[in-house]
Design a protein around this nucleic acid. Structure first.
Lengths: 141, 141
DNA sequence: CCGGATCCAACACGATACTG
DNA sequence: CAGTATCGTGTTGGATCCGG
């Protein structure tokens, strides 16, 4: 997990307004953007966050909620989210065993901005697809 | 942040729609979330969007703004963003040639939700790093 | 200054089989 | 039910050289 990307003065200036509105402090030694975006930008994290945002899910429920995820990636993505403190895992020693996953408070705090971006994606999906078609056609000229 | 944000009914409604489009079809091109998130979730798109959000940049400026990006990925990511209609490319026939990239109106419309997520990332970066340390230490037991 | 073309290592991801 | 283990592969992305 290497990411030496720094916030250059350029990007820093762009982030100023953001940081102000949040009241946070800029840590220029690392790049928070990539450190977090690389995780939520992987293939399944955001979808699992959305699923868990509606209600806690058991392992099998998640698998049914996101049908085309492989069991391997479901396990791995859940462990990553848990390591980041976004999801908590609760084992019930029943027979057969059942495990429940739910968002932590920090995980819940991520939902509004995440859903904001997803709403944008859903709203502009058609326009983006059209832009891709136009671009491909223009490239053929 | 300080105040644990709760999920509003609006958010829940939005998530319902999202999950419908996720679970129904296996065709990933029809899932707005993945189709768009897979693009902005790649290694450099979001950083370039932030850089271009502050002001138009020339190719070399972008390279200096994001020092760790390779020339190959800068070219490729810019072309993808252009294909999606998020960035426009303007060539000035000077000698030597100069090329300016700037956000399209759709690209600008993406900035608020994108910056919202980045603000969250910046605000919670320290907490996430600590959670990863705790998780690793606990796993060693 | 801007970018294309090629080669190659790393890894994310899927499929499958096995366990407690 | 809830995972782990192993293998194979398509894709990502960095390094480098070349061209207009």
């Amino acid at each position: 997990m290497k990411e030496p990307t720094h916030i250059t003065p350029d990007l820093l200036a762009a982030m100023q307004g953001v940081m102000q509105s949040v009241g946070g402090k800029v840590d220029s030694s690392k790049c928070p953007v990539r450190d977090v975006m690389d995780h939520i930008g992987d293939k399944w994290s955001s979808l699992l966050m959305v699923a868990l945002g509606s209600k806690p899910h058991r392992f099998g429920e998640l698998k049914r909620a996101v049908p085309d995820i492989s069991q391997r990636m479901l396990t791995q993505t859940l462990r990553d989210l848990q390591a980041d403190g976004l999801v908590s895992r609760h084992v019930f020693p029943t027979v057969p065993p059942s495990v429940e996953y739910r968002l932590t408070p920090m995980g819940e705090s991520m939902m509004p901005p995440l859903m904001g971006l997803m709403a944008w994606a859903a709203a502009h999906h058609a326009q983006i697809k059209q832009a891709r078609l136009d671009f491909a056609e223009q490239a053929a000229a």
